[in-house]
């Protein structure tokens, strides 16, 4: 099956390369991006107090969601294009033809809603931390500590968002509603991933 992901240099459906070549190309972007997520997580106050098992579990569950937020700007809703890591732009129509389908549409929708909130860098950073600690907690050793960390970060985010634009009272709620959207995207992405085996 042809697969396209913005973290590839080029969509796999177009190049005629082997699965191994596609994987190597993807890995060149993917590995550093995941490392950046881990570094980001290490700087979230309280994250490193969690057990290593829970840190790994949270990162495994939340990395895609964090990357989706970080790379939301790759999706240009106005132009209906996606910019891949090679800086090449592909139209929505081309990408549909490469098997991105519903996931692509949902990513566009998410990016549009996030962009409409016009978050400052500080707000985006704190929101991204909330995204990570709000990831699925299946298999956690100490879910209560993660929940406590999540509550602390959400309180800080609420204070920051209200301070930035006190007149827009619904902005924080709209932002929090992005969390279930990200969970849905994560599930759609997992389904795609399961159809692409790397042996």
């Amino acid at each position: 099956l042809p697969q396209a992901c913005p973290m590839n240099s080029h969509p796999a459906g177009r190049s005629g390369r082997s699965v191994q070549e596609i994987w190597e190309d993807f890995s060149l972007s993917f590995t550093p991006a995941v490392r950046e997520v881990v570094e980001f997580a290490k700087h979230i106050p309280g994250f490193q107090a969690l057990s290593q098992h829970d840190q790994v579990t949270l990162l495994k569950a939340g990395t895609f969601e964090v990357l989706m937020v970080r790379f939301a700007s790759l999706f240009n809703v106005k132009e209906q294009t996606v910019t891949f890591m090679s800086r090449t732009k592909y139209s929505l129509e081309e990408l549909w033809g490469m098997g991105m389908g519903d996931l692509l549409s949902s990513m566009f929708e998410f990016s549009e809603k996030l962009s409409a909130l016009q978050l400052s860098d500080e707000e985006l950073g704190l929101f991204t931390a909330v995204v990570l600690v709000s990831a699925d907690r299946s298999g956690m050793e100490d879910a209560a500590s993660v929940e406590q960390l999540q509550e602390t970060l959400i309180r800080a985010l609420r204070a920051l968002v209200q301070k930035t634009r006190p007149a827009e009272s619904s902005r924080f709620t709209k932002l929090l509603l992005k969390l279930p959207d990200l969970r849905t995207l994560n599930n759609l992405h997992s389904e795609k991933l399961l159809s692409f085996r790397i042996d």
Partner: peptide
Amino acid sequence: FADPASNLGLEDIIRKALMGNFDDKSE
């Protein structure tokens, strides 16, 4: 169902990054 994350070697990258092992190019 397999764990989708294991398809990407995600856990391995995360564990190495958490331990500060940024020099390993094996992925």
